[in-house]
Design a protein around this nucleic acid. Sequence first.
DNA 1: CGCACACGTCGGTGGGTACCGAACGATTCA
DNA 2: TGAATCGTTCGGTACCCACCGACGTGTGCG
Lengths: 246, 246
Amino acid sequence: MTSRTDGHALAGLAALLADPTRAGFCLALLDGRAWTAGELARSAGVAPSTASDHLTRLVRGGLLAEERQGRHRYVRLADPSVAQLVEDLAGRAPAPATPPRTLRAASAQASLAYARTCYDHVAGRLGVLLHDALLARGVLDRAGGLAVTPAGIAWLTDLGVPVEPLRAARRPLVRDCLDWTERRPHLAGALGAALCRRFLDLGWTARGTGRALRLTPAGRPALAAALALDPADLAPPARDTGPARA
Amino acid sequence: MTSRTDGHALAGLAALLADPTRAGFCLALLDGRAWTAGELARSAGVAPSTASDHLTRLVRGGLLAEERQGRHRYVRLADPSVAQLVEDLAGRAPAPATPPRTLRAASAQASLAYARTCYDHVAGRLGVLLHDALLARGVLDRAGGLAVTPAGIAWLTDLGVPVEPLRAARRPLVRDCLDWTERRPHLAGALGAALCRRFLDLGWTARGTGRALRLTPAGRPALAAALALDPADLAPPARDTGPARA
DNA sequence: CGCACACGTCGGTGGGTACCGAACGATTCA
DNA sequence: TGAATCGTTCGGTACCCACCGACGTGTGCG
């Protein structure tokens, strides 16, 4: 046969994600933070020894990066491109069709659907609203593919997000990411990450449980003003009752 | 735990690509054409019964689409997004480090590195040249993310590639695709596919063995003129000696 | 200094699955 | 109508690997 990229290499990489436990690890790590081996083991419901084995394989395969601190082993996704890969796969995978069983779970799910991080950018209903508002305000444009307009560069700089430094990154400046609750695109890429970070820095948003995000009381009017939206459009759903995991 | 996208769904999808034989099928199908079950079986070196089993799983999993014609079962990648997924995975997978053993293989590989299709768009050195030339000519622009310029829309229309109809597609108009021989981006997305098709229609390029592509004698000066390039820059490598597969 | 904790390593077990050969339907051609 | 080809179904075998429990190592705290 012609010399082609060997199927073994591709299969080996895919095999890393072909186990429910390892896949669960990667989904959990989509919150963009570093987890310890024990946290992941508990989250997946497996023995610590099993989790340790899985993490070693994921790190050797280049999907995860690890950092040892004392007796803890912190792992995180190796790269934004890994996060994109996991997101793309998860977006294509059939919906698990797991209706929430308890009130707590329902509330947590509503909170997740409203706003969450997708590795390092804003997703959920808030993410889609942000995406749409940026288009409406002319910060982004879709005429010839998703791009930032000259006026948008000024607007972003004014907000405290200089665009020039973002070009240095190896990843695309702007990119679509299909939202798996809204089934509509939201903004990813280097700019999506920078905006998410900026909102946190400004105190407009704050991290909740897991990858949940919430709009702060101060953030709601501020964001509405910046995006020329009605604050009512940014109303959150049911109460996020607070922390859960051990 | 919190209700999250179940790891089982992701793992099930990844498992489809986690087998060397199935992965090889998908890589072969990256040429964008439909293959019969028997061709794929021979190409992978497995029994027809084994291949049949694998194909059924890939179709059920939504990665492949099938079409029965008489006693033949034709399969192809279900969707451009599947091709993108496979490309992304293959690009991240470690290089198989398989130096060509025979002269035939070396020649075929050089031909592939020069020009090939990446599912439905132009890749290889020609793909990168095309990408760079489109940027240099101002058809594409990267100032705020990869996009087509207004001048570019006119240029493309003049070439016989109207841009408006391409917006109707569900996929992005323009997209970067990392070339695994050149390690540099080339143009993918709906426009990349349309350009590849147009070049074939114009007779500027022709399909070779597998996913190989070659620039025709008429195509070389025509493409050079359209892109304002020196025809010498488009010189192909060693001879492509012809068909190989049974 | 010694207990508690986090993690890694090492057999052993069980379930999942890739593979083949052989027999069987279906289609096409002579 | 018979023969060749393409594909599928069906056992059966061998192999891989996810999982656990138990034990060992290093860290941090009292």
